[in-house]
Design a protein around this nucleic acid. Structure first.
Lengths: 357, 357
DNA sequence: CCTGATAAATGGAACGTTCCAATAAATCAA
DNA sequence: TTGATTTATTGGAACGTTCCATTTATCAGG
């Protein structure tokens, strides 16, 4: 049914009675072309249903307008939000981001990266999958393609990163709990193969030390960083001989799981046990109880990463300075700051700006 | 720092002491090449850090291995899940899906589609943005590119669709509420510019009619299809002179909003007011109270859509039969099926399979 | 050792664009 | 009117691949 012959620049040149070069110039919006010829050409383009072949163009031009965005878990609203922030930045730069999901699989990640390379992306924003080998990006670096890591960093990598101030965020959260009088604390879920984890646990430990909490009174429990993992970790924490009274969770998903597990045990989050999350996803505000969490301005970080890679492309460099994003603790109800547990209008978060490290 | 000269097929031909044609053949895994020459070539590829230029290849081949996936709202976990289902299907077909987000903007959608066309996608899976004009896909259809709509359909379109059985799902849910004795019902959020909406409201009305409910006793309230919209709609519903006792929500996000609004008013969802959602996102099971919802097998539909477009590409057609996915009602706690409101171990959902229409 | 067949490798044209150098057309100063 | 300038337009050679038609190497069978 469809006329499956492709129209090229030559067809529309013939149609408009000009040369292919003229058409090309028009396509690029050159000012060298008289405006009446230009509109003649544009009309022909309109009529023939011509579609520009970017592959052919890139062959000659050696730079493209697509930027790859590789994320490790799209179903996590956190990463979706990151992606949205990036798109916002790209839109005004007339580049198109193509998103691909690795589902936390290094193998899949390799495929995806290869495909993006082959497609000729101008730059890359990557949130590396867990368990990524150090040499996974060798080829990209060799090709000199600008790349930045977002939200996650690799141990020994020279690739610039855009991450929140994990250490400070965790310390902030822990101090909040300590200031409320808690003396036996737990850190729930995550595992040390992620640098983020080490940073967050580091901040957590530091704050505990400041308050003179003996190491024996803090429990750091590894586990899956999901709702399920949170439930499991909390259960594990509470079965200890001398259980903690408060927990800092690796991220909000874990925190939601912890809250759920508390309820299941007949404990009331906020009153009997304090919970703090990390990331401050949109849902945190609307949870029951509303979750106290470390806000990292996800979309802002995404935007930042986008600008970074854009600038790198422009200045044809593969290096840039790391950006450590400010964080701040958004206090809501899950630590029971006020002893009332009414479901009144959630107090509006007034993000007191935190300084970057 | 980086050696910014690109290696081509000729470079590796020289390196391996063969012709470019041979290299090309090796790249395609042809059996015409003796295995020792092949491995010689592969070694050269390895050493030089060569990256295949798919743009150049497509120029000659006129078919590509990328499929575009255009979704209207990535931050909705529902669509993210859809995307994941699609990826699963594509992975085994060695095609790479590139995801782009339109954020419900027809303008952005146009840009994104144009870009994908230019990039030479072999096929397209689209969940159209709200307010998409009927001729938005004219160019794609003219180009004869296989396309399927997922989750949403356009009023007068011949493009094949993969959607859940919205009508039946809504009817199922409404009957559930009616069977529980509710006689004043509301349908919350959404608006008639979406075909999905009309289908769901249709099923809802049909069920009410079956039970002989007068039209004056059912309230259909339009509104934003978000948590916020849900809260607003519920508030609106309850201020009516003779308020409903149960609501079917356009989707789960709306339902979560409705539950929240109930709590804010001091009402207990499940006991004082029944709420049913639609889509059954992962979160529904873990909510408090666990949300009764119409399950649509999102990932399955995504997979289905992927296979559909794959098949269309293979058979070079632009037509296919619509797929209407089976739905079933997952009964949890938000309609208070049992009058106990304990937070005990959530009853495990036993999805009694519903037949397709 | 040759013949014919088969297997393996190759050169060249094409794909649709951009860009440079060159030409043609329009404009201007004298 | 003419040459000098400026403004518009154009052909042709790339870009990195595939694929067809050839050429060259390999191998049986006589």
């Amino acid at each position: 049914m469809a006329a499956r012959s492709k129209t090229t620049i030559l067809d529309i040149a013939r149609e408009a009675g000009v040369s292919k070069s003229t058409v090309s110039l028009v396509l690029q919006g050159s000012s060298l072309i008289r405006s009446d010829t230009a509109s003649k050409v544009r009309k022909a383009i309109e009529e023939t249903g011509y579609v520009y072949n970017r592959g052919a163009a890139n062959l000659r031009k050696a730079y493209s307008n697509v930027i790859g965005m590789v994320v490790n878990d799209l179903t996590n609203p956190f990463y979706a939000e990151l992606a949205v922030g990036m798109e916002r930045a790209f839109q005004s730069a007339s580049v198109v981001p193509f998103i691909a999901n690795t589902a936390e699989s290094p193998v899949r990640q390799e495929e995806v990266l290869k495909s993006m390379l082959e497609q000729g992306v101008a730059g890359l924003i990557v949130s590396p999958a867990r368990g990524t080998r150090p040499d996974a990006f060798r080829q990209i670096e060799a090709a000199g393609i600008p790349m930045v890591f977002a939200m996650r960093r690799l141990p020994e990598s020279r690739v610039p990163v855009v991450v929140p101030d994990n250490w400070r965020g965790a310390a902030l959260a822990a101090r909040h709990l300590l200031a409320k009088g808690h003396r036996r604390l737990a850190f729930l879920a995550g595992s040390p193969d992620l640098v983020v984890y080490r940073e967050r646990v580091g901040g957590f430990r530091e704050a505990c030390q400041e308050f003179g909490i003996p190491a024996s009174d803090i429990a750091v429990l590894e586990g899956e960083t999901s709702r399920k993992g949170g439930m499991a970790c909390l259960d594990r924490a509470l079965t200890a001989e001398d259980p903690p009274t408060a927990a800092l969770c690796f991220n909000d998903a874990v925190a939601f799981g912890a809250l759920l597990a508390l309820r299941r045990r007949g404990l009331e989050p906020g009153r009997n046990f304090a919970v703090v999350g990390f990331d401050d996803v949109a849902e945190a505000e609307h949870y029951m109880p509303a979750l106290t969490s470390v806000a990292v301005d996800t979309a802002g970080l995404g935007e930042r990463a986008a600008h970074m890679v854009l600038k790198m492309i422009q200045s044809r460099t593969t290096r840039a300075e790391d950006h450590i994003g400010a964080v701040n603790l958004v206090v809501r109800e899950s630590c029971g700051p006020d002893r009332s547990s009414e479901y009144d209008t959630a107090k509006h978060d007034t993000p007191q700006q935190g300084a970057a490290a």
